[in-house]
Design a binder for these strands. Structure first.
Length: 282
DNA sequence: AACACCGCCTGAGCGC
DNA sequence: TGCGCTCAGGCGGTGT
């Protein structure tokens, strides 16, 4: 499931093919995955960047934007099962089912097809008039988790009476962390997911901010977590698997103390914790 | 403010 | 082999 590291890796993997590329044609297969602002009654192909040149890609949290110079922009959210793939001309898409939209690209590195595929349709594409609209949309998100500093994290969590894990999953507080990396970062920081934000010490927040940054950076460097069928913009997957220390390891021994990891539910999410290493009373 | 709960959706994995 | 069930979860909505 794509979280910040997967989207960051996706952005980097697509940039060579898309930056400076021209969108020659657009094909919408399922229009209900395309979201248009209220001021536009219906989808016009030029809003999907037809005949526009892509200037750059941008990311905040789990969202990816495809930007043009002074023109429309796409904001893409992959949800649970979304994929964005660049398929060079002459190559075939491994799984052509559940493709909802595709763009014919004439890029500096050759022609190809950009494909949005999302079996479960939790993701979507938002058509926005310009870069400013993307920034406005993203202003609702908290600061990006990849570079989160202790002072900023402390401000975001201040006086909040809720479990730290629930706060980390709240994209308005901090953007980019999902269930996997919330558990991994909390384990790395030795903080129990149920610990209330208010009871975290200054030192714990410092350790947590560091744990979030290093956990995410490591995952980006590894190409993200490959769970089931996640793949990057070139369809690369499998060998990119990062090593999880708690996620998906309930009932297995903790790598630090050897005790069995426990499964609990926090904020309606399955949570895996080592109750020995992650102390609630601290 | 912050919680619970729901609906959206498919595929994997399981028991029978 | 195939059926029916449970589970996975991001996010926006509603209700408490």
């Amino acid at each position: 499931m794509p979280e910040l590291p997967e989207i960051e890796h996706l952005k980097r993997s697509l940039e060579p093919s898309l930056q400076g590329a021209m969108v020659a044609a657009v094909k919408v297969i399922r229009s209900d995955v395309i979201h248009v602002s209220r001021s536009h009654a219906r989808i016009h192909p030029s809003m999907l960047l037809r005949r526009w040149t892509i200037s750059r890609l941008d990311r905040k949290g789990k969202q990816l934007a495809i930007l043009t110079d002074d023109g429309p922009a796409l904001c893409i959210h992959l949800g649970m099962s979304g994929q964005l793939r660049f398929v060079p001309k002459g190559e075939r898409l491994l799984r052509p089912d559940h493709v909802h939209c595709r763009w014919q690209i004439k890029g500096p590195c050759g022609e190809g097809m950009l494909v949005f595929r999302d079996p479960r349709r939790f993701g979507g594409i938002w058509l926005l008039p310009d870069r400013a609209a993307v920034m406005k949309r993203w202003s609702r998100l908290g600061p990006d988790a990849l570079g989160i500093q202790a002072t900023v994290l402390s401000d975001r969590l201040a006086a909040r009476e809720r479990p730290i894990k629930a706060a980390l999953l709240d994209q308005q507080l901090i953007a980019g962390i999902g269930n996997i990396y919330a558990d991994e970062a909390l384990f790395a920081a030795r903080i129990h997911p149920l610990t209330s934000c208010v009871s975290l010490s200054r030192e714990q927040i410092k350790v947590l901010a560091h744990a979030i940054r290093t956990t995410l950076r490591r995952a980006v460097a590894a190409g993200g977590s490959t769970l089931r069928d996640y793949s990057d913009g070139n369809g690369e997957a499998g060998w990119f698997k990062v090593h999880h220390r708690v996620y998906g390891r309930a009932e297995l021994p903790c790598e630090l103390c050897g005790g069995l990891l426990e499964r609990l539910v926090v904020a309606q999410r399955t949570t895996v914790v080592c109750s020995t290493c992650q102390d609630l009373s601290m």
